[in-house]
Write a protein that binds this DNA or RNA. Structure first.
Lengths: 213, 213
DNA sequence: TCTATTGTGTTAAATATATAACTATTATCT
DNA sequence: AGATAATAGTTATATATTTAACACAATAGA
């Protein structure tokens, strides 16, 4: 039975890692694993793993460990991976196209139902089965299809206005690849930023300053 | 004068954000800014910003604030953005191609000097001015060019062996897009993971559990 | 030039997170 | 079936991180 009282972001961000590794174990045919074994493989402490899992309930058996298959399913459920969230992608540039083609959205609860771009050189072209639609069609499309999630792969300048249009059409969740930091005045939205440049700068810092952890 | 004694990862990960925003301000012609103003724009507390900056020295003036231009440069220096790190990219699939075309590596201290792939359908093709080289040529290439950084855009299975080959050739820094969690036995390496699927799963969790923060 | 105000740098307190210690349950072995 | 070992769940401690408070320097205005 889940407890779920104010789970911290630190815990949530480790769940996909557990899920990924457990899936891998399952594929390898491993049926049971202890928190200690997990901790070694993942480079964490056993304490942390046990505590993370216990935020959601006791999935293990004392003296035995965790059943890989079962734990994997449990975490999948916690993450909500069996949900179906209608998703659109805005921006069919290099990155947008790669995201659309590369990601297995379905496995993570999302269904890509439309790709948009405002450049005439892109609209009408085909990406992974989807025909790129002109961004002027956004409102019409949303009214009909009611997407709940938008992936933003557009330049900084365009973001604020697109967000407002999408919010107006009921979209509340954003996976943001733009350089723009979406600071939502709205309370009911979820934003996950992926700032590749920030990641690269962090890497640059760490290379340049090998002393720091 | 920098102090730099064991800067925490939390601080380091905020630096690119500051840098990005200050660059933006600079472009807009803003010349000075206070920690309070910054905190409002970035959605952080002024205390945090002041403390972050003071890890590296006092860049502001009491009663006045920070000079945008100067602070921006300082943070750029701290991040080491003027470094030149020879970089190669492994894996010319959807994601690899997008990363190679989309990123402004030069602005972040990296020079992309080669792209590799093991599939004959990719080798010889051109990506953003680079001809894709067969991965069998990796050792020859490294011996000559001495890259220090590798971007990994290959499937999980290939990662461990590629890392070992690269490590053998002196590459110590990795920007990893694969689903594989690089757990380095080696002490002198820097790994920055970008797990897009994890990010998406986190998003899925947050949509499915709107109560949590 | 003096004074009030602003706003940094710094120290202290509060909160969050991670680790360690402990308890109790289950499995395994004899 | 009973004893022992293994290991989850839980509580307590330690550490890290964030926020708040404050003292002091510089600015700007009268």
């Amino acid at each position: 039975m889940p407890r779920r009282e104010n789970i911290s972001m630190s815990v949530i961000r480790r769940l996909p890692r557990y899920y990924r590794f457990l899936t891998h174990l399952k594929d390898k045919g491993v049926t049971r694993i202890s928190s200690t074994e997990l901790s070694v493989k993942l480079g964490l402490t056993a304490s942390q793993i046990r505590q993370d899992l216990n935020c959601f309930g006791g999935f293990g058996q004392q003296g035995y460990g965790y059943i890989v298959d079962q734990l994997c399913d449990e975490i999948g459920n916690i993450l909500g991976l069996s949900s179906r969230y209608k998703t659109i992608l805005i921006g069919a540039g290099n990155l947008g196209r790669a995201i659309a083609s590369h990601m297995q959205f379905e496995d993570e609860g999302f269904d890509l139902i439309g790709i948009f771009d405002s450049s005439p050189s892109k609209t009408g072209t085909r990406i992974n089965g989807h025909i790129v639609i002109d961004t002027t069609e956004l409102e019409n499309f949303c009214e009909k299809e009611k997407p709940v999630m938008a992936i933003l792969c557009i330049p900084r300048e365009g973001v604020q206005s697109i967000i407002e249009r999408l919010y107006g059409m009921g979209v509340r969740n954003f996976w943001n690849f733009s350089h723009y930091d979406i600071s939502m005045r709205y309370e009911d939205t979820v934003v996950e930023n992926v700032h590749l440049n920030d990641s690269l700068m962090t890497l640059c810092y760490r290379i340049s300053n090998p002393n720091d952890k």
